[in-house]
Amino acid sequence: MIDLGSFLAMGGYAAYVWPAYGAGVVILAAVWFDGLRRRRAVERALQAVAQSRENDA
């Protein structure tokens, strides 16, 4: 089994390895969720337009 302490220490390079992985998680998550958010926003707006058209009719 791996020892958690030495795994986290990354052979003394924890200060470089973990921020690199952290940057990866943050940037990829930002791209992913920004895409989701924008799609949901436009879908809501389309629904609102459809609704108002129904109300007009």
Partner: peptide, 26 residues
């Protein structure tokens, strides 16, 4: 990942174009 987010964004942009057209029509 690249393919998934690319398709997601292209979908969004197509929907946004549709929204612009509908607003223009309204």
């Amino acid at each position: 990942f690249l393919l998934a987010v690319l398709i997601e964004r292209m979908r969004t942009l197509l929907l946004e174009a549709k929204l612009r057209n509908q607003r223009l029509a309204a």
